[in-house]
Amino acid sequence: MSALLEIENLRVTFPTARGPVDVVKGLSLTLGRERLGIVGESGSGKSMTGRSILRLIRAPGKVTADKLRFDGIDLLAQSDRQMRAIRGARISMVMQDPKYSLNPVMTIGAQIAEALLTHQKLGRTDIRGRTLAMLEAVRINDPARVLGLYPHEVSGGMGQRIMIAMMLIPEPDLLIADEPTSALDVSVQAQVLEIIDDLVKRKGMGLILVSHDLDLVSGYCDRILVMRAGEVVEECIASELRNAKHPYTRGLLAAIPRLDEDREELPVLQRDEAST
């Protein structure tokens, strides 16, 4: 089977007063139907990588690549109209914070139905049925009641599950999750990841999980890319993250406090600036 997503030498550039700055510098990756984690600190270019796959980077930002192919389609050659048919239907993205990603003046039901209707023609009862089923799949109690609620009437964890329902209802082949759980509680985090995991397994989706949480990614993904300043510094099998070799990855791992912490001080990464 050919790869779901192939990227070669991806470069994202933004112009600044001091000349163009590359925020992603020549990234290459191949993704099958698997769970890939991208980790790194803020500013490492991990979100930009996710966004450039969906061609969501607007001018003056510039995306170039030797190859950016999804399921045989050259994404860089698509027109905006063609891209709109791909976004949502074939590649979907879950954003970080449900508070900002849900439309505050539309009911939950209407928003999920919109995601479905954009890509398919369906009757009203079909839509309602599919929406209810999807909300149930993301473990929302009493979905019929939730359909009529507005985003401010649901909790953060519920909002994020609704976002996931909305992104998954067109049954995409590839899901890009950009920090899908960092706004959530630990206990809810586990639930949300379990839901995504279940759907990845059952529908054979590809998943790119972008996160700064090494523990979470190593416990959840098959493969991990560690990014720093726009470059991939290390690639490894998730279970092998503990044995990472690159000093940057080791530094990140050492900086995480442990549950049975007995170190007097946590090691910090050396930076170029005087103080961060």
Binding site: E41, H212, D213, G251, L252, A255, L266, V268, T276
Partner: peptide
């Protein structure tokens, strides 16, 4: 905050 920055702030608080 990021994990590495979190470590700096935790050290500072300590």
């Amino acid at each position: 905050l990021d994990v590495s920055v979190q470590a700096e702030i935790l050290n500072l608080l300590k």
